[in-house]
C-alpha cells in the first residue's frame, strides 16, 4: 500500500526576500505535486519536522511550486537557514480547493493581512489566467508597516490587470507611506450597509459577490463581522482557517474544530460553516 506519510524530495531552486522575516521559496519536487488554489501541502525540513503551507504560485504551473513563508516557529526558522540547492520534503496536496467554476461571472473580493496574502496569491494567479470569466477582482491588502508588505514588486503589476483593483493600507502612519492608514478592515469602508443604499450603486453585489479572506485570526473575525453586517451571503465568504494541521489526512486530530477536520473539510471554510461556533477564529 502507498505510504501517505512519505515526503517527496524537493530541491530549493530560488529564495527571494520579501520582508525581513518573510521569504518566497521556489521548490522543484522530484515527483509531480499538483494542487488547486486553496489546497495546502505539508513541507518537511529534514530532521526538524513538518508544517502546513498553501502554495503561493500559480496552480497551473506544475513543475515547480513557490511558497511564501514567515519565520514563526521551529520548522520555518530552520527553513530560513537553508540555501538554494538544499533539499526539503513535500507531501500533498490536502484539503479542498476553491470552486473557481462557482466564482465565474461574479465580483471577487480578496482580503489579505500580512503574510496572509501569500496563500491568496495562488488564487489570484489562477483567476488571472481566466480573467475574462470574472466580473471584477478587488485585492485589498493590509500590512503592519511598509517594510512588512509582501510582493512589493508584484502588487503594481496586479493593478494593471483587466477588471482588477488593488487597495492597500498599513496599520500606523509612516513617513514612507502616502496611502491609506488603519487596520485592514478600513478597506471595507467603501461598502456601505446595504439597507441604506441602492444595490446598483454598490462596489459589490452583497448577494452574489465572493470574498476570500486570509490573515491573522483577529483579522478574520473582524472582516467576517464587517461583511456580514454589510449583507454579504455567509455561503460566499471563504476564510482560510488557521489550525495546527499536522497530518493533513483527517486523522491526527490536531486541527479539529467541532466535527470538522480543517485539513480535510477546509482549510478554506465558509462563514456559514463556522457560524455555529462561538469564536471560530
Amino acid at each position: 500500500m502507498k505510504n501517505l506519510y512519505r515526503p517527496i524530495e524537493s530541491v530549493i531552486e530560488d529564495i527571494k526576500d520579501e520582508t525581513p522575516n518573510i521569504k518566497t521559496y521556489r521548490f522543484r519536487p522530484k515527483e509531480p505535486v499538483t494542487f488547486e488554489a486553496g489546497q495546502f501541502v505539508e513541507l518537511t525540513v529534514p530532521g526538524v519536522g513538518e508544517a502546513p503551507f498553501t502554495p503561493s504560485s500559480n496552480p497551473n504551473v506544475t513543475e515547480t511550486m513557490e511558497i511564501t513563508i514567515m519565520e514563526v516557529g521551529s520548522v520555518t526558522d530552520a527553513l530560513a537557514k537553508m540555501k538554494v540547492g538544499d533539499t526539503v520534503g513535500i507531501r500533498g496536496p490536502y484539503g479542498k480547493g476553491y470552486d473557481l467554476k462557482d466564482f465565474e461571472g461574479r465580483e471577487i473580493l480578496i482580503m489579505g493581512g500580512g503574510v496572509g496574502l501569500a496563500p491568496l496569491r495562488s488564487l489570484i494567479l489562477a483567476l488571472f489566467d481566466d480573467i475574462d470569466k470574472y466580473k471584477k477582482i478587488s485585492i485589498r491588502y493590509g500590512a503592519r508597516t511598509p517594510a512588512d508588505i509582501v510582493y512589493k514588486d508584484l502588487l503594481p503589476k496586479w493593478e494593471q490587470m483587466k477588471n482588477t483593483e488593488v487597495l492597500q493600507t498599513i496599520d500606523e502612519p509612516h513617513p514612507d507611506w502616502k496611502g491609506t492608514v488603519g487596520v485592514v478592515t478600513v478597506l471595507l469602508d467603501d461598502l456601505p450597509l446595504v439597507t441604506t443604499v441602492d444595490v446598483e450603486s454598490l462596489p459589490f453585489d452583497p448577494k452574489t459577490a465572493i470574498a476570500c479572506v486570509c490573515g491573522p485570526p483577529i483579522m478574520l473575525k473582524f472582516v467576517n463581522m464587517g461583511l456580514l453586517d454589510k449583507g454579504w451571503n455567509p455561503e460566499n465568504i471563504f476564510h482560510s482557517m488557521e489550525r495546527n494541521m499536522s497530518c493533513g489526512l483527517g486523522k491526527c486530530g490536531h486541527c479539529m474544530m467541532g466535527e470538522y477536520y480543517i485539513c480535510k473539510d477546509g482549510p478554506v471554510m465558509t462563514a456559514a460553516q463556522v457560524a455555529k461556533f462561538e469564536d471560530p477564529f
Binding site: M1, K2, N3, L4, Y5, R6, P7, E9, K30, E31, T44, P46, T87, G89
Partner: peptide, 14 residues
C-alpha cells in the same frame, strides 16, 4: 516509524 527519508519508494513498509 511511518516513513524513512529521503526515499523514492512510495510503498509503506509495514
Amino acid at each position: 516509524v511511518v516513513a524513512k527519508y529521503p526515499s523514492s519508494d512510495s510503498e509503506a513498509e509495514v
